[in-house]
């Protein structure tokens, strides 16, 4: 960004969307547009982050998010390394604080953290000078997922304000739901959430979301349906009786989708439980934009890496 152009994203880290403004979200999404153009080229590589180091620090298994971040870094020519909890000193019981100190000493510019516990990204961000991107921390936030959801909706609809967005499923344990609620609400959409009362946390209305327990009611006139993955372990915790009953009450099928607006988009952060939260013909049908979300995820993460490393306002001859 040259002189005179306002840089609208001035944060060291991206830990969540709760403390990000609508203007900053828009700026991020705008920056992702040319990034998407780059990945549509036959040679998907630009030198923007040459000489920069990106560390992927994953304490949880992840195929989609991790692959997406790795590709984003590679397209921008950054050097990236992967540290996962099963194959490192983390497995020997090293604390997050000490791992953070090590990463600091390695000279990372960006650390991407996926962690099973809420607040881990904030702890890391307070310890390292590098920019920290939260790639999902417990049930707290998964901001890049919400950004790619916002990008996908904005690209399809042009405008997010005024849309009705419904999030269905295990809201209680979902970091995607929390980031989507903040993101879509800030952008002027009306957000509804729907799930069994045992999987909807208290105080959600204070975020601006409306809570429904009946999927048919919740679906009426919505523009976007985001289906969340239901995990079988929640059944063992006694939060719902089983997948059969769950699918009967909260599974998205053709009849139910007909209650939404005709041009409604169906989204899913993946991986999909076909026949449970979403019927196969819907997941593969014309309303679904699930694969597009994956592509857009790379573009959004490229934009974020670019902005958090200085937004291109440093040039090679500066060094």
């Amino acid at each position: 960004m040259g002189g005179g152009i306002l840089i609208l994203f001035k944060h060291k880290d991206l830990l969540g969307l709760k403390d990000i403004t609508a203007a900053e979200i828009n700026f991020l999404l705008d920056t992702a547009v040319p990034m998407k153009e780059i990945i549509s080229r036959p040679i998907k590589k630009v030198p923007t982050l040459r000489g920069r180091t990106v560390v992927n620090l994953f304490y949880e298994n992840s195929t989609r998010t991790r692959g997406s971040f790795e590709l984003a870094a590679k397209h921008l020519s950054a050097d990236s390394i992967n540290i996962s909890s099963s194959s490192s000193s983390v497995a020997k019981g090293e604390s997050l604080y000490d791992t953070a100190r090590t990463i600091q000493s390695l000279g990372a510019d960006v650390v991407i953290l996926r962690h099973p516990m809420a607040g881990a990204a904030q702890l890391l961000a307070g310890t390292v000078e590098a920019a920290v991107i939260n790639a999902g921390d417990g049930a707290h936030e998964h901001p890049t997922q919400a950004l790619l959801d916002l990008f996908t909706v904005r690209e399809r609809r042009g405008e997010i304000a005024g849309l009705r967005v419904l999030i269905v499923g295990d809201i209680l344990h979902s970091r995607v739901a929390r980031s989507d609620i903040w993101g879509f609400t800030k952008m002027g959409a009306e957000v509804r959430v729907c799930g069994p009362p045992t999987l909807v946390p208290p105080g959600l209305e204070e975020t601006g979301a409306r809570v429904y327990y009946n999927l048919e009611e919740a679906l009426v006139d919505v523009d976007v349906v985001i289906m969340l993955r239901i995990q079988k372990e929640r059944q063992q915790q006694g939060l719902f009786p089983g997948l059969r009953e769950y699918a009967r009450l909260y599974g998205l099928n053709r009849e139910r989708l007909a209650l939404a607006r005709k041009d409604a988009l169906v989204m899913h952060p993946g991986p999909v439980n076909r026949g449970v939260e979403i019927a196969s013909d819907i997941a593969d049908g014309p309303a679904a934009v699930i694969e597009e979300q994956v592509t857009n995820g790379v573009a959004v993460r490229m934009a974020l890496l670019y902005l958090l490393t200085g937004g291109g306002d440093r040039h090679e001859n500066d060094y």
Partner: peptide, 13 residues
């Protein structure tokens, strides 16, 4: 405590 803050922080209440 279980309430608004546990919800937005994603911590078990």
């Amino acid at each position: 405590h279980e309430g608004y803050y546990s919800t937005i922080l994603g911590l078990k209440g």
